[in-house]
Design a protein around this nucleic acid. Structure first.
Lengths: 215, 215
DNA sequence: TGGCTTACCAACCGATCGGTCAGTGAAGGG
DNA sequence: CCCTTCACTGACCGATCGGTTGGTAAGCCA
């Protein structure tokens, strides 16, 4: 009897199960948990409905497996974000753009996680905090803190706050570009790189006039 | 025969219909469209299921009515945001905090709109852009632009971008406070006013050291 | 060879879904 | 007075839901 992998992390190993997972990931992220039927998943995966329940005990188990896989995938490559050398502003800008690209390239996973957070509230928030964004966040905070150590940025600001703003602004682009795009002067929401550059510039320099010139 | 108000904006006028709308708004925003059954709505509203269909042609019609009502409610009071007088930084800070409070107070509506945007993608984005956030956005842009006119902020920044950042950072707080709260140094996500103050400070002054002191 | 496990499937189950229908009782107008 | 309108209901419909059951065919180890 299969479908007993409740706690384990063994990846499917079976080709059918992988196809089920892939189909489920796409459908769940696009339509949400309740809007997707096991029939639809089975059909898309090219297997029978009973086979879905052979590999996953319940629909919720399948969803959890999809979410776990998505989280794992999302954490790949984040070590490559940003350059390790160079002055702090460049390092921050590089991280911000890499992270935004990463989010946009994995839009399916991003939407899945976002939806899950929306539906499962605070309790899921803690889980996700630990296993998904944790690495991104820690790395970003480290970049900022190191810059602060070298007095390359203000001492009186909270590095965690800056990290929240960078990631938050990227998520904002991901989920609200379609809204803001339609406003007059909102055409920068069409170009991630331009958006990232503008946001980082403001983050670094603020919007108030300076003594010197701004660039 | 009722249930024929497909295009009209006449508010329910009937007490039963109002109770149905209220129940539906709460359930839809909490659990999402597909997870809420007409039975559940009817039960919560204290009417029969058939009566729901008497007032609203289909489940989707009811959902649309809820969304429309939510949008209308959300736009109330936004004219009171921010003070009209005083220096630009105070005006911006005041708007940002008022807007954040507004979002948090109407968390049900906010979540409903957010969910709808997530599920209905770009096509709904345009609608929402026009009818919900439009007024907020325009007002915020006006505040920023007026400050720019008086040379109270940099000339080379895009007012729309600043508006996106203010609103985006508020939405970030709303939806991700439960995630970021769990990180070391993320305790500022417990206090909206503190978060808003920190964000606006960075927005205004940037994170790079200045010639003078920062405050 | 025979027993055991595993991947898989068609058929089926009770429950619930969105939605319909025939009808009831009260209000209102002629 | 009847007649229409309207808010409202219980009983019902076909479809589909998540999940189960009994069974088949292939591989593996003895």
């Amino acid at each position: 009897m299969a479908a007993e992998e409740s706690g384990k992390d063994i990846q499917p190993s079976c080709e059918g199960a992988e196809r089920i997972l892939a189909a489920a990931e796409e459908l769940f992220s696009r339509d949400g948990f309740d809007a997707v039927s096991i029939n639809a998943i089975a059909e898309k995966a090219g297997v029978s409905k009973a086979n879905v329940f052979h590999h996953f005990k319940t629909k919720n188990d399948l969803y959890l497996a999809v979410l776990k896989g998505a989280c794992a995938h999302f954490c790949d490559y984040i070590d490559d974000f940003g350059s390790d050398r160079g002055p702090f502003p460049e390092r921050l800008g590089s991280f911000a753009l890499d992270h935004l690209k990463h989010v946009l390239e994995r839009s399916e996973i991003t939407r899945l996680i976002q939806r899950d957070l929306l539906e499962n509230g605070p309790r899921r928030g803690q889980e996700l905090a630990e296993r998904v964004f944790g690495q991104n966040f820690a790395r970003l905070v480290a970049i900022i803190r190191s810059g602060q150590g070298k007095a390359e940025l203000r001492q009186d600001i909270d590095p965690a706050m800056v990290a929240v703003m960078v990631i938050g602004l990227n998520i904002t682009f991901f989920q609200a570009a379609d809204v803001f795009r339609h406003y007059p002067g909102g055409d920068f929401m069409d170009d991630p790189a331009r958006y990232s550059k503008m946001a980082v510039d403001i983050l670094l320099n603020g919007i108030l006039p300076r003594g010197g010139e701004t660039k």
